[in-house]
């Protein structure tokens, strides 16, 4: 399996309003704060507002929400209150349900959709290096470099782990003393990874890389970032 910074994400990122990293993060946090502070009385217009804003910013984001696994998860989270909260006092198509529970179910379902849409939109728009750059500015110095190494290492480590696993399996290493086999597998995989890490560290140092002297990874900026940031802050204050 490989990282999905590709097709589906690219589809979503087509035709989008040019926001910078700060803008996308502000919108994401704005949605989270609003839905988390919503009550059953104001949930419709708050979640509606969030969904409209998210659809404008990330036009294709709904596509990634509608898949079997997520719908199943939504059902598992939203359906139980229909029967377990309040008295079962109403009937719909011959199925009894609780009217109090139905409101809570709806609230849970809408919250779930907004949180997923916001997160999916944000991750489709913001690059992994930009997030690392932000975290670097919050004290995790060197995270950008480490993330770069990690993303580049991912395919080769996956390949090396798979090869070690297959070699062990073909030699019967998992039959009788499977625990010893698993231990050997872990040792081999991590040793390979560490050897590779040593090479990368040497290569970086030979190019005069030093964590103290490097600047944090650049963050994508847009002129409307601060406008979006101010608007989200103001609207949160007004609504709450």
């Amino acid at each position: 399996m490989s990282l999905d910074i590709s097709r589906e994400t690219q589809k979503i990122s087509e035709r989008r309003i040019p926001l910078g990293t700060l803008g996308h993060l502000a919108v994401f946090l704005w949605c989270l704060v609003l839905v988390l502070s919503s009550t059953p009385e104001n949930m419709f217009w708050i979640t509606g507002l969030c969904i409209v804003v998210l659809m404008i910013l990330y036009p294709g984001v709904w596509r990634s929400i509608i898949n079997a696994r997520r719908l199943l998860l939504l059902g598992l989270i939203a359906i139980p209150p229909l029967y377990f909260l309040g008295d079962v006092d109403k009937i719909f198509l011959g199925i009894p349900y609780s009217s109090v529970g139905s409101i809570i179910s709806l609230h849970i379902g809408l919250k779930f959709i907004v949180v997923l849409m916001a997160l999916e939109g944000m991750t489709s728009a913001v690059e992994i290096s930009a997030l690392a750059g932000i975290l670097e500015r919050f004290g995790l110095k060197g995270l950008g470099f480490s993330m770069g190494v990690a993303v580049n290492l991912l395919p080769s480590l996956q390949k090396s782990c798979t090869q070690s696993w297959l070699a062990l399996k073909m030699r019967g290493g998992l039959r009788k003393s499977w625990w010893k086999g698993l231990k050997l597998f872990s040792l081999t995989s991590i040793t390979c990874a560490l050897k590779r890490a040593e090479e990368i560290a040497l290569a970086a140092e030979s190019r005069a890389f030093s964590p103290e002297k490097t600047r944090p990874l650049p963050i994508a900026r847009s002129p409307i970032d601060w406008v979006v940031f101010s608007l989200t802050c103001l609207s949160v204050l007004l609504i709450i």
Partner: peptide
């Protein structure tokens, strides 16, 4: 940093 990246990747 590279070692941490390796363990994070794993």
């Amino acid at each position: 940093l590279v070692t941490l990246a390796v363990f994070g990747t794993l």
